[in-house]
Design a protein around this nucleic acid. Structure first.
Lengths: 335, 335
DNA sequence: TTTGATTACTCAAACGTTTGCGTTCCTGAT
DNA sequence: ATCAGGAACGCAAACGTTTGAGTAATCAAA
């Protein structure tokens, strides 16, 4: 089970181990003959360079931390997939940690990542409060925040323009003839949610329609929570809306479930628009119209931003806001 | 940006750095007074132990490799989530790699993992052929295969009993009154698929009904592939079945999509049963009945098995086959 | 007071690399 | 024959830990 080291190779090849190192690293200070010989020996002995030993002297592990709330969430796994692809081609590997939206576990994840000397961290925070809690860690290692808008924070982040996305969705529904649009979701707690709610409000104002809210008070968003709240909503007296704009696809799925149970047809009775365009939205029978997060682009920009920070120590920070797009499917109809 | 080391702590605390090490590692050979003092200094200086330096001497990185085909596949992300949970509590972190079902990338992933000196690898192979290709790597590091049945292979793996699962599904449909059940999916190429097909055949034989196949020839399974094939199926003359047993939920979703387009109602016109019970199956409007893989259990057993192998060098190998269960939802009805 | 044992430390080697510097050897010009 | 200069390679330090072996101090028993 013991791995073969550079010394073993050196012994067989009959050279010093520094020569082996040079042969492998592509240094010029070595004759072509010995290099080839050494490479042949490495091949034959199944030599694999020990990254951790190299890391000690190079001060770079070629490891990137990825902290997500929950890799099982399609939003996150989508990001994770693209992040892995993008970083692998650049020689990095990613070490993964789920925080389960628990601040204490987020802290623990950072601690572990630092211990493992990762070269940088892509961090999908569970809430904007994470920033303050983890400030100490964050300036010990290059970090970029991904997903959440974190306005007014001296750190790099990349996210979609949630405000614009909500505007876009509202405008789209308006364009379909809807004048009574209910916004379903949290309005505070996370900057993302706040911005979406604000974007909706702004669009309503510009379009001259009155905003209506149904406030999702759950701290975390899941289909189940959306479902429970939607049942409350539909049981209410005096509802007066033709469309629901859900703050997340997950909420939208919960609404679909409640509607299904109550015999409310979508989009015949009410239109439903989500936000995020997670993979689930495109499933058969679901066909959820949604404001799309450009996952691949988000991942790509986050990776670029992080690698930039890593190579360029004093790069400062940057806020990268990407444009959302509207993905029209079958849950929204002309009124 | 430079991290504080054990030497920095030693200097401040006024002791040798080996004493600091001992204070941290909980050795008894140290007075309570100095230990407390050292711990206080560590706290104050934000000291985090350098895992990679420790790894050099301890020969353990506390890193576990997880090689999946595609983290974006709900089956995989489900496993990944539970694997992360289980390993974290035991002090391990996981480094992730997607193979995209490409043998070359699987090889590359192993190479990288070995370079990073991971203590063990959980490997979800893309096909049974992976074993032979990667044999050399596999006995350089403790590895357990996850997901695929790999009969007759001298390596540890854990998977569900695919044969029994297919029997179970077939029996269930029979119990609902179905006598003409079509099996939709690949019959060869992967042991998993083969076992499922065999289980179906065996059940048919025992129940005295004649098996019918519609062979999915695509090398990889996706909703799109399932959809295209299902359209071919439904366009065929002389179909004679009241239920479809899809070899995977992904295939089943493709079938649902085709059925939806063609106005075929599920379960009124035909019943549909999937296999895997991925998260998607429980979504509103989908409600796919499915043979369930016990994800949490699979992850847990795989982790146990791997850690066992790691701590016990000569543990040999074991094949752990878990029982599937039937998850009844709304795509299957009494005939 | 001497001895022996125990406690609480310090020293230094080792883990597998990279790399600056030193050394050897060869070539060709003087 | 001498020497400068460069090519090719070896030596050893360094990275931050752990740990066995060594040492100084303390204390109890003789």
């Amino acid at each position: 089970m013991k791995n073969v080291t550079i010394k073993d190779v050196a012994k067989v090849a009959g050279v010093s181990y520094s020569t082996v190192s040079r042969a492998l690293s592509g240094s010029r200070e070595i004759s072509e003959a010995t290099r080839e010989k050494i490479l042949a020996v490495c091949q034959e002995m199944n030599y694999t360079a020990n990254t951790v030993a190299r890391a000690m002297v190079m001060k770079s592990t070629m490891l990137l931390g990825l902290i997500v709330t929950d890799i099982n969430n399609p939003f996150m796994s989508e990001l994770a997939y693209h992040i892995d692809r993008q970083t692998r081609t650049r020689g990095y590997n990613i070490v993964l940690a789920n925080s389960s939206k628990d601040p204490e576990q987020e802290r623990e994840a950072f601690e572990l990542m630092l211990g493992h000397q990762v070269d940088g961290i892509i961090f999908c925070p569970s809430s904007p409060a994470s920033y303050n809690m983890l400030k100490d860690y964050i300036d010990r290692v290059p970090t970029v925040f991904l997903g959440e808008n974190l306005r007014d924070i001296p750190q790099s982040y990349v996210s979609v323009d949630n405000f614009r996305g909500a505007e876009l969705g509202t405008e789209y529904l308006y364009g379909l003839g809807h004048r009574k649009i209910l916004y379903f979701g949290r309005r505070r707690g996370s900057t993302t949610h706040q911005l979406r709610a604000d974007g909706y409000a702004s669009a309503c104002k510009n379009l001259g329609i009155t905003p209506q809210y149904f406030n999702n008070t759950f701290p975390t968003t899941s289909i189940k929570n959306g479902y429970q709240l939607a049942k409350q909503l539909f049981a209410q007296e005096g509802n007066d809306f033709t469309a629901i704009f859900a703050s997340t696809d997950t909420n939208a799925l919960g609404i679909m479930q409640a509607a299904e149970e109550l015999g409310i047809r979508i989009p015949e009775d009410i239109s439903l628009l989500g936000f995020d365009n997670i993979r689930d939205a495109s499933l058969p029978r679901i066909h959820l119209s949604s404001v799309e997060q450009p996952f691949k682009m988000l991942a790509s920009v986050a990776v670029d931003c992080l690698l930039d920070k890593i190579s360029n120590d004093q790069a400062g920070y940057s806020h990268r806001i990407l444009y959302p797009a509207l993905k029209e499917r079958k849950t929204t109809a002309r009124v």
